[in-house]
Amino acid sequence: MLIEYLQGDSFIHRLDVRTKMFGFLGFMILSFIFQDPKYQLLIVFSMGLLAFWIKIPLRKIGKMLVPLIPIIISIILITGFTFTPERFERVSSQAILFYVLPGDRLGATLGGFLMGTTFICRLTSMMIASSVLTLTTSIDDFTQFFHKMKVPAEVSMMLTTAIRFIPTLDKKRRLIIEAQKARGTKFNEKGIVGSIKSYLPIMIPMFINSIMMANSLSMAMLNRGYGLTRTWTTMRELSFETSDYWVITLTVLLVTLAIFVRIKLQIGVL
């Protein structure tokens, strides 16, 4: 879902992976220092623009959000009712809208609801931002990044192999399901035991096939010289372009400005 790479040649595609990671970090800081939903909405909006700019399928992200609606509602409700007035600095946020229980108990604070909205906004912008990141960055770039961060080569090898084999295993899974269906397996048996039992005919061949595949995979890897040395030729050297420096500078400026506004001017708190 998130690992899909969108082929393209947009500005963001061309940025160095390290720049993108840095930008992502900057975005996280921005998103976390502001509590006021107004600012959060601004962030969501600018992230949305970014996504729109590189023509990311926003509908796809929307689809991902739909199942989260119950969670979104419950987050707003929970924060609304559990955040007591004392937790807010501003008087306006401390206002209690109404009480659920008689005797002035379990009051719903305005600040609580606003806080809930902030959480939702954070969640949304985070999703958009990480989608932008993963959709514009190839796996190769990520492994390069790990390499630069001194993560061992085995880890990136594991990562790429795992990603490479997801479609293969998925195909296996479909074939196994078909083979078992042809023998009359029903997948809708009742109860926990029943449903586990009905998945055994899928899971066991799946494990056996994976083990067999892993076995021949290890042979094939040795066959092609894997493990002779601990390092290998990197296919593409990362290099900063002018645009990378611009983006990094911009990010630094933006984050500094945001911290100044938030700490010195006390803007954006609830």
Partner: peptide
């Protein structure tokens, strides 16, 4: 499946 049998190419996809 009670009246129509289907044997797949790879037996390892069904043996468990």
């Amino acid at each position: 499946s009670k009246t129509i049998g289907y044997v797949f190419q790879n037996p390892d996809h069904q043996i468990f």
